[in-house]
Design a binder for these strands. Structure first.
Lengths: 162, 162
DNA sequence: CATAGTTATGCATTGGGCTGTATAATTATG
DNA sequence: CATAATTATACAGCCCAATGCATAACTATG
């Protein structure tokens, strides 16, 4: 009994602590930690983790997660998942897009957005259940909000105006 | 197109801003916000939100979310969901249980635990991808960790010791 | 107590994510 | 270049959350 999050965390640890040169080897290492997975699964894990094969000191190529762009660009897919799971509401106050989330979740959404490098987003800040997206000057909050709303799969213009 | 989070957020807003006396009425209010749901769904939403019917000034009974115990005890079910989605690893250093999560998610896990009032958990603190659970004096971190691990559905003793 | 109104829930359906199998595509090696 | 090794992926199955429908359970009212 294992979860994906646990397995991927283990994968990240393994490849950082030892030289892993093939999927098969990784599968074996996981097994030692009593985590069962197939080559296909670790292939997908490595991709999601952004791992790449690099040449090591002794000439082999081993997997590693790029250290210097740890905030590698997250696939749109992952962003969509996060947004649709955690976004409660989107409002606009140009050039700011205000996103509300369940309590304590704003940070998760914000960091997913930060990593996504989507167009028109200049930056974010997050509180507890609210976060701001600042739209780039020539893009506009409206357009950004529409895009985010679409990704989140939510109905726009939700909140009733007083 | 709507998400559960958005709908429940809208439900919370609606019942706080107007007197909602029945599910049917709530369904209608949602519809005005272009959120489609049935009575069965709002029934479940109200339960998950912890809403109760209270008597208002004018004698009707209307739904409301208890203000003073907003952190009502979350059902074990929800806790299990959160843990199995976000817990990457669990370690023990008595009386502390150390839980690691994906980046930025520790707070979410911690607040879920806080609300759950599970046995043997004295308190929590959360960083970015790590959180501590302090076990109650006579309970012990080991037992607590075992319980949490089971809830999370993860393999214990995951991390290799150096 | 009977009836209408309201709320909860068993059941079936749907959709999506995750995973393994099998195999295709790619890369390395001799 | 041929073959072996490695990696990626199409496909199918499984599982679980979410939801609607139908109806049971419950509540209020006269």
């Amino acid at each position: 009994m294992t979860t994906k999050v646990q397995r991927q965390s283990a994968v990240a640890q393994i490849i950082s602590e030892s030289d892993v040169t093939s999927h098969t080897q990784l599968v074996r290492s996981l097994k030692k930690m009593r985590i069962v997975a197939t080559q296909a699964t670790v292939s997908r894990d490595l991709e999601e983790l952004g791992a790449v094969k690099v040449r090591t000191s002794n000439g082999e190529t081993a997997y590693a997660i790029p250290e210097f762009e740890p905030e590698r660009i997250a696939p749109l897919d992952q962003l969509r998942r996060v947004l649709s799971e955690w976004v409660a509401d989107i409002q606009i106050s140009d050039p700011i897009v205000i996103i509300r989330t369940p309590p304590g979740c704003a940070h998760v959404v914000a960091s997913a957005l930060d990593r996504s490098r989507i167009e028109g987003l200049a930056g974010t800040v997050a509180g507890d259940d609210t976060m701001f997206c600042v739209a780039s000057a020539n893009y506009g909050a409206k357009k950004l909000a529409a895009h985010l709303g679409k990704l989140a799969g939510i109905q726009q213009q939700t909140k009733a105006k007083k």
